[in-house]
């Protein structure tokens, strides 16, 4: 059992775990953070698969931009909700 395989197994497990938790965790903000973590793990995975181009793109687009989009949407929705509650 090489070090590489061990790392791969760990990475695989973390990928599955973070993906699973991103869907199942009750709190939305945590889900989003987990999703961004998932994106970063994907970046590592691409690096492990000798695909540096995809790793770069995943980091910038997959984790970065998608994460930013999601967080921004979440923030806007929270603000809206808070506003609505304040009105009550």
């Amino acid at each position: 059992m090489s070090l590489g395989l061990g790392f791969d197994l760990l990475l695989a497990a973390s990928l599955l775990w973070s993906g699973w938790r991103a869907l199942s965790t009750p709190r939305l903000d945590r889900a989003l953070v987990l999703f961004i973590a998932f994106g970063l793990l994907m970046t590592l995975t691409w690096a492990r698969l000798a695909a540096p181009d995809i790793a770069l793109a995943e980091a910038a687009i997959g984790a970065g931009l998608t994460g930013a989009l999601l967080l921004d949407a979440f923030g806007a929705l929270q603000a809206k909700r808070a506003e609505a509650e304040a009105k009550k």
Binding site: D53, A60, G64, L65
Partner: peptide, 14 residues
């Protein structure tokens, strides 16, 4: 080498 329009564009966007 690795890199290109997508990655560069993404960095610009960032």
């Amino acid at each position: 080498a690795p890199g290109g329009a997508f990655q560069a564009g993404a960095v610009l966007a960032a």
